[in-house]
Amino acid sequence: MADRTQDTALYSSTQILRRTQRRHLTPAGLFGQVIKYVLLIVLAISFALPFYWMASSALKDDSQIYSVPPKWIPNPAHWNNFWDAWNVRNFSQFSINTIFQYAIPSTIGTVLSSAFIAYGFARIRWPGRDTLFFICIMTMMVPFQVLMVPLFIIFKELNWINSYRPLVVPAFLGSPFFIFMLRQFFMTIPQELSDAARIDGASEFGILFRVILPLSRPALTVVALFTFIGAWNDYLGPLIYINKMEMMPIALGVQELQRAVNETGTNPMVYPHLMAVSTIITVPIVIFFFLAQRTFIEGISLTGLKG
């Protein structure tokens, strides 16, 4: 922390240095700047263009979709495609399944259990703790493929196939990745706060809920956000456990729609409908991302720094 003032001083001196440099931009420097912005803009366009293509194709009809050369601006724009596509398959049902049966329960489960477990690993000193924590981290190395077959057999025995229980129940038993992240965060909270609460007669549960969790809101938001989006985006989990149409999440619903392309080749309006549904399910991600951009960026940066 003491370095910070030094860093700030250094930073401001660099700023001054930069400013003076910019005033006397040499022709070579100017050339470099131009190259850099051209590169950035070309890259940005190529990164964003697929999404533009998706959204614009969602508004086309078949004659525009199959036109050569491709039409970049749909004219006329068929806004009713969104509504039609949503009802080609029962996407209202699929999205209700995704949100209420999967995303919300697994988010609640993961946040609660991971915080609880992380507290045991971060704020209480007990023999064997670090060994168990190491084992917890190591379980992340086990490829899902190894567990996939036995888990399917377990859940089949339990009669949990075609329900969201195989995906939601384990969430209530913590996720090693988020346990790790929350533990790192909890360890940065000064021990004095816990000690003061202890003197005031708080139990460990009281300390977790009244002291630690209120101070950990940013980290908990990251966990909630990542879990929710993970469930929204998940494909392999539902693919294994769910095959009844009325139980499907959105991802499997889109796949059902895609199958129409594979099997019959060129059904009318298949591509506009696929693009329309894809656009609709991307919108919540866009909204989440712009509402919580800083949380996202800090959360992901956090995960890498311990490498």
């Binding site: 990164f47 263009l49 697929p50 985006n233 693009m275 894809s278 399910i281 991600i285 960026i297």
Partner: peptide
């Protein structure tokens, strides 16, 4: 720029697949 470069990473795989299948289609792709 950071938002644009990052965004493809959080799009559902099913959407990524649909976009690129169509985008790279040999007959109708952009």
């Amino acid at each position: 720029f950071r938002a644009i470069f990052f965004f493809p990473a959080i799009v559902p795989a099913i959407v990524t697949a649909q976009i690129w299948r169509f985008l790279l289609n040999v007959q109708y792709g952009a």
